[in-house]
Design a binder for these strands. Sequence first.
DNA 1: ATGCATTACATGCATTTGCAATAGTTGTAA
DNA 2: TTACAACTATTGCAAATGCATGTAATGCAT
Lengths: 148, 148
Amino acid sequence: MTQINLKDFRREDSFGFLIQTIARTLDEKMKIEFEKVGVDYKVFANLMVLGQQDGINQREIGQRLNFPEYFTSRNVDMLVNAGLAERRPDPASRRSLLVFLTEKGRAKAEELPSIVRDVNKDVLQGLTDAERQSVVGLLQTVAGVSSE
Amino acid sequence: MTQINLKDFRREDSFGFLIQTIARTLDEKMKIEFEKVGVDYKVFANLMVLGQQDGINQREIGQRLNFPEYFTSRNVDMLVNAGLAERRPDPASRRSLLVFLTEKGRAKAEELPSIVRDVNKDVLQGLTDAERQSVVGLLQTVAGVSSE
DNA sequence: ATGCATTACATGCATTTGCAATAGTTGTAA
DNA sequence: TTACAACTATTGCAAATGCATGTAATGCAT
């Protein structure tokens, strides 16, 4: 409970400030790149999850991305409206819906990883390869996804 | 331009995914802590900047935080409405306004660094001290604020 | 001094967001 | 079987967001 004097506090040394700043930079770059290929930035994460495995329900999608459910619900709406995905009844339960990619959706999904990789590389260009690996590893620990 | 197969892409290895995930975690924790002391989460950053130096104009505040101007404009509104800050004419230019903290605002601002420090520490609890320094240093480079 | 670009800030408005509430379904325990 | 809790998804609505525009002031070149 030691007090910190405001004058001694440097934003640039604060983990939170750095994360938020970088998050916004990433947002902007991603948005630009995804618009180039006609994919709405808001749904790209959903599209990628479905690209890796579809036929899962919306709650499952949300859990993998740490997104709230109403968000997933609306994102799937967007995917469906864009002709990229479709909802089908779950044979195992009438209360859940399974989401599948359309062919068009699958084709789009295949384009995404390279874009993500390139944006990450761009943002991380100031680091050496070893440093990149290092920072990713440390952030995995912070996010609690490290040695799963 | 090597293609990446979707199946080989792991979200948890993506710098961007990690940043966004951690950013949301930080957001939630910050929000909770700031509400405890009656400070709106949205304006805390502005309050801290002013705590370090007030009598600056709104554009200057925005630049230090990488916030757009309309955002700062509204944030200062909030600070003013909450009795934490006040706008005064800039003697050097009638089109700019200098923002000053009130006494109440200064008192609030003094409370913030400890909270930020504690939340950061909480989020980084899985890392050793050396690792914390390391990740902060690497992120500083990424954010372009390193050796200024 | 005049005209024009730029600066500083504010805001109208459509879109997006998030919370809370709803509807319908399923599991389960009495 | 009935009642009740938990699950899955959706949506109404108020608040927040961001873009584009507006207003006023200033600098600067002609």
